[in-house]
Structures are given as C-alpha cells and as structure tokens.
Amino acid sequence: MDRDAVVIGKTGTPFDLPIERGKLREFIRAVGETSVNPDDPEAVIPPTFLATALWWEHDDSNPLRAANLDMKRMLHVEQEFVFHGAPPAVGAVLTGQSRIAKTWEKHGKRSGDMTFVSVTTEFRNEAGEVVAEGTWTEAHISHAVAN
C-alpha cells in the first residue's frame, strides 16, 4: 500500500445508485431477507443493500484506488450502515460519494504492524439530503493474509 496516497478527506468521483426492483429482488433472495416484499411499491432496501454500490462506482469513485492496495494484505474488518430515517425505497436514485474518513496504526502480536483505513460513502437523495452513510474499514497487515 502506498501510504502517502491515504489522505484523510480525499474524495472519489460521485456515482448514481438507482434502487432498482430487480436488483432488490436478487439481493433479498441472496441474503434471505423476509421483511421486504420486492413487489411492494414502497419496498425499502435491506440493511446491507448499499454494498451493491460496487456495481455502480466508477474506476475513480474509491478514494483508496491511488493507494495501490494489495488485496492479499487487506482484511475487511468492519462495515457499518447508518440511515437517517427509513431506508431508501425502490425507485429512489441515490448519489454516492466516498471519502477517506480515518486512518490509524496498531501493532498486533501475531499480525505485526497494521494500518487501518475507513472509507465513508455518503448517499444523497434527489433533493440532495444525506439519507444514508456506509463506512467500510479495512486493515492492511504487514504480511500476506494467505500465509
């Protein structure tokens, strides 16, 4: 990882995330969500649905891209989603933008030096209001995960 590229506050390019009924149906089936009926005209997204941003992000939407992450040394350690009011419903078109929120170091006995990085994605509705945030926390460890 190029640590000089991990600059707090650095943002990626915004991307659209339309809440599509077909994608909602597919996701609900994949995770076994039972409280949402995708045929309901007001169906909301399940708690982790914003992970589907992966389908919509542009190459430069992830502000960590310039850090040349070696995925063999990266561990996804935490994930959080916060909703300001009811989660978005089918038909909404959200705009997401990610920023490097936090980075910190830790020394582990078994894993050696670790660098943690949190990237927070803000999701806004058509009116420009922040309706949700997703925070993705990765640990970069000094030896490869596979060892």
Partner: peptide
Amino acid sequence: TAWLGARNLRRFKVRF
C-alpha cells in the same frame, strides 16, 4: 429485520 422490519432499521454494524 425478520423480527423488527427493514423499514425500521437505522443503523447496522458488523465486525468480521
């Protein structure tokens, strides 16, 4: 959510 409903969720966090 099967118990309390996805529409009522405001925060969800996991540690792997």
